[in-house]
């Protein structure tokens, strides 16, 4: 059966759900959207997009390294992301000038990861299907096992985040006061980076290394344009992310172009719309 759009939404959705691969993709997409929206909300609040992007590209050395030594690629993803998160946590403690030399360290960690990935790839003589699939993912090839594994990892990451939520919000909003009140700020930094690494490693196996980043940054940033209240913001962020992923997957099914393009475009469009709306609102008052 070839996909055809019939302008009747009910029959279109029913047509979508007749395929197991589409059901898997929608389930995985929903889990990914919730996970990325919640973890990303903290990432955006903490201004750690650069660290988030660096962890997202660690999928590349992870996958190529695992292929080189013959391990399953999932292990490679988790290993590479964890190592990068630990390295970043270490440099943030060593940094002497506050922010600016820390970004140099993050940038260096990112390129070292990519350079290692390139080395693994050339040692392995292109067993992988080109760098694009690695970087841009294959949403529509998700298996049942992957959906289950994703669900477990998402539960672990979100549970850990829920445990840390209160002190983490405090340490993020007012670092100095939190430190003075005895909150272990450095430990929280490292803990959050590890949760981010876990979420990214799980997500990028499905969305690809480069698109996990769009889901991490755009829905939370859009939500934070609307409200700065944590609970409402988190809920809104999750709502945006799920809507973007469902819409993207649904439209991509009827189109010859890749899912990643639709998801990033909807995410970007939403942010631009909200930004414009906020600007118009502030002018009117």
């Amino acid at each position: 059966m070839t996909p055809s759009l019939s302008l009747d939404p009910v029959s279109d959705v029913r047509q979508l759900l007749t395929f197991p691969f589409m059901v898997n993709a929608l389930q995985a997409g929903t889990i990914v959207a919730v996970l990325a929206a919640v973890v990303g909300w903290y990432m955006v609040l903490r201004r750690q997009s650069f660290a988030g992007h660096t962890l997202s590209v660690m999928a590349f050395p992870g996958a190529t390294g695992a292929a080189l030594v013959g391990l399953p690629s999932a292990i490679g993803y988790y290993l590479a992301c964890t190592i990068a998160a630990l390295a970043m946590g270490r440099t943030s403690r060593l940094s002497q000038y506050g922010g600016s030399d820390q970004t140099a360290a993050i940038g260096t960690i990112q390129t070292v990861g990519l350079a290692a990935g390139f080395l693994f790839l050339s040692l392995n003589q292109a067993v992988l299907g080109g760098p694009e699939t690695l970087l841009f993912g294959t949403f529509l090839g998700v298996t049942r096992g992957q959906v289950l594994a994703l669900l477990i990892v998402a539960a672990v990451a979100l549970g850990a985040l829920a445990l840390l939520a209160r002190p983490l919000t405090f340490a993020t909003v007012d670092r100095e006061v939190a430190r003075a009140r005895g909150v272990p700020v450095g430990l929280l930094d490292a803990g959050f980076l590890l949760i981010l690494a876990l979420a990214i490693a799980a997500t990028s196996q499905i969305t690809g290394a480069l698109l996990v980043f769009a889901l991490l940054v755009a829905p939370p940033a859009s939500a934070q344009l609307v409200t700065s209240a944590p609970l409402a913001g988190l809920a809104l962020s999750v709502g945006f992310a799920v809507a973007i992923v469902w819409l993207g997957l649904g439209i991509a099914y009827f189109s010859i172009y890749p899912v990643g393009f639709y998801i990033t475009t909807f995410a970007f469009g939403l942010y631009v719309l909200l930004r414009a709306g906020r600007w118009a609102w502030s002018r009117r008052r």
Partner: peptide, 12 residues
């Protein structure tokens, strides 16, 4: 981050 993610989407 947002503009950059979108441009990567265009790249896809």
């Amino acid at each position: 981050g947002i503009v950059f993610a979108w441009i990567l989407g265009l790249g896809v």
